[in-house]
Design a protein around this nucleic acid. Sequence first.
RNA 1: GCGAGUAUGGUGGAAUAGGUAGACACGCACGCUUGAGGGGCGUGUGACUAACGUCGUGAGAGUUCAAAUCUCUUUACUCGCACCA
Length: 949
Amino acid sequence: MYNTKEIEERWQNFWKENKLFNASNKSDKEKYYLLVEFPYPSGSGLHVGHVRSYTALDGIARLKRMQGYNVLFPMGWDAFGAPAEQYAIKNHIHPKKAVEENISVFKSQLESMGYSFDWDREFSTTDPEYYKWTQWQFLKFYENGLAYKAEKEINWCPQCKTGLSNEDAAGGVCERCGSRTEKKLKNQWILKMTSYADRLIDGLKDTEFLEKIKTAQINWIGKSIGAEVDFKLKDTEDILRVFTTRCDTLFGVTAMVLSPEHVYLKKYEDRIKNIDEVKSYQQEAKNKSEIERTDMTKEKTGVKIDGLKAINPVNNEEIEIWISDYVLASYGTGAIMTVPAHDERDYEFAKKFNIPITQVIAKSFIGEDESKIREDKPFTERNVVNAIIKYPTENKYLCVQNKKFGWINFVMGGIEDNETPIDAAKREIIEETGYTDINIEKELEFIYFDNFYAAHKGVNRHITCHTVVGKLNSLEEKERSEEEKDLADVLWIDEKELKEKLTTNAHKYDATRVLNNEGAMVEDGIHINSGFLDGLNKEEAIEKMLEYLEENNCGRKTINYRLQDWVFSRQRFWGEPIPMIHCEKCGWVPVPENELPVLLPEVTAYEPTETGESPLAGITEWVNTTCPKCGGPGTRETDTMPNWAGSSWYWLRYMDAKNDECFADFDALKYWGMVDLYNGGMEHATRHLLYARFWHQFLYDKGLVPTKEPFKKRVAHGMILNSDGKKFSKSSGNGVRPEDMVNKYGADALRTFEMFIGDYEKDASWNEEGLKCCKRFLDRVYRLKDKLNEKDTYSESLENIINKTIKKVTEDILSMNFNTAVSALMILTNEYEKEDTISKKDYRILLTLLNPIAPHITEELVNINNLGEAICKTKWPTYDESKLVDSVVTIAVQVNGKLRGSMEVPNGTNNEELIRLAKELENVQKHLIDKEIIKEIVVPNKIVNLVVK
RNA sequence: GCGAGUAUGGUGGAAUAGGUAGACACGCACGCUUGAGGGGCGUGUGACUAACGUCGUGAGAGUUCAAAUCUCUUUACUCGCACCA
């Protein structure tokens, strides 16, 4: 019928020759900046996943251009980094050469898809003209004290022989090669990203990122507000500083725990009597992989330090100090105070090593239910025990039901002065239920408070509850007193029903604690055993404790972040050289700006070295240089930047890509401002976006860019999965190559299909049948040319649907609901097919609306049918509001909310008339017989509902 | 464990200021076209029922004249973070 290849090439050349998609930096038009993450030009070529997001934004770009915007829609290459280097090593070609080849494949693939990129602004992060400015910006960080060199334990991948950021080595596995990472000390360049932590959170307010992206970033930064507390180290001048979010629990501290890397272990080596044991534990921790260390299912380990003790600043108690690998060196101060009563991990540790557990917070049900007390009666204090007793053989629990009020609860009663809670429980069980063969196993560790009106004594009880747990060995019993029999019935309640049937929240709480076998008491409550904090709730207690700590100079309010500074060094060849020179006399000296870029030297071997140094370290003629400051001998930094560096400012370069005076002219930066819409994968929601925002915020602070934030709106496309719903992977060899699909069905069909495949934000499974159907749809559009008549106005019968479709397609594309936009165009096509003939204008409007998604075939059809100027040179259509209204509407008629009929009426028929007509419907009348209408509900133009009785 | 999200026919998915659930497709069935295949065209297609009807948006409650949509509870799956003190 038609040759897609021929048509596509013709129009791609037409766009190129006429430079139709080049954005101008000077224009009266309103600007619109669309950005897709620039690809990594890998050896495997373009993926169907790329096609999805590029087509989506291309559609928006084409539509916006036709709407009269000056659209910037650029493309470039993120070509530095380990994968390009690995690829080069594997295929024995220079990375530069490999990158060039890959880029040319990628570019021709992109061009064959018909994307409307402004190729005049293309660049690669590996171009010296680009990385000159990446280096220049690094120097700005350095000048402002935000780049520093530090000896830092890094994640080391023995396979790739390189240092990795925490991000690249998440979970103790190298992101690139999947091998286990080790820890290694290295002197690294680090960017002080943590000093922007708050800004990175606050700045989100100025963006319209997807909510889930905002939360992901906030979680990643992991801000937590707490306090530093200084414990005196007994018999020394030192203090042991810890970070805690719960300084209110300081009276519950029963141990201190240091991370195995803590500096005091070295410093006080001589005092530690069991230093050998400590050292071997440190060694063990070091040898463990990150995975083993962070495996939460494993049991806690640790060693008590014999010879060091800490002093609790609130009560001067001496506290034992331990080391354990559950305390991380990298967070807070690398040491913690242990409050086993109220922290799960500390509880587990304490149980394992028999560390005392001191309850300092008690759950309280007081004030929860005012109806339980009588305001006119006095309060009395009482100690009470609840007995949770299991049936001898089944999962049932012993309860009693009050005959007068119906309340159900566990056996409970007061504890007399000479009794333990266990004694009291036994006595009460015998009295209340008659069972005698009782085995109390334990008393729960944590008490709680409750209150109620004790009717038989005429007083309100303020009770302190102890809970005991046990079972009956047998159902042996003795007769209960008449009084008890009158008061309550004995019930056995199944484990599953327990929480529903128990009356009070306090007893439900007890049931939960026992059934779930709960450990630490982590809920909020009232402070006890806490000196000046007793009786306070959590917030009050934290505030008061902070005051105390500050007055006594032993602590202060502090904020901690999960986010860490950005390790900016890589021991690799294929990256931007870090433009620093080391001089024996002057230390680290920046390369003068006029000597930038520091070019990568030509080398023959770029494989990483066994020593862990960058391959650059071996090239003495490159390394040896003179110190820019004193003129003496100097050596160049041989580490290179991570591949996140080049992508941390690339959107700025697009604004003025050929500038050789500066990274981009300030007027150009001002003209384009924020990226209006930035699309990329969810996998970049934290790392790339945070690095990019950090970088941009810094440039803003230095007055180098005009906006606080780089991106206004960020969206994320769903992945294209294979037909089994799994990720495409190289190893399983199930990839779909876009060029194969283009050859078979054409670029337009592939574009249309990937837009129709489903919700843009959700993952979608590849299915070639669906692609065929989209090709069929385009064929149908093509065949409509046979119905053309000579008229140049909309066909009257189609006017309404045409206007509706203009509205729908415009809104849907701009709101990224591409699937429903395609669906609307299919519906319009169906309508056209029902007509005997269609006008030129009818046809042209369909082709125009379809153009952003299928640009080649639509231009071709306009051209061969003499429908006027090329679509991409014309205005995007607007709809006529007055033509959107249907003259006749269908009204659904319901009786009691159930559909009983429908009727066609003129639009705007009044309510009385609608009700009258509705009642006349045969099927409706049937349901009105012998019924009285009590309510008539009308939603104009939609529904009539008759409520009958 | 914490955080976020998702759940609708045989399938992909439509429909949320609450208002005819299943648009548009795929698949399937039947028919027409064709020597046949492919392709095209047409009709039908949530379940149960002979039918009137009844049921139906993961499950269970609730609010309402009316719930896929709002509230509460709950299950499963996906993603992110995870011994973060």
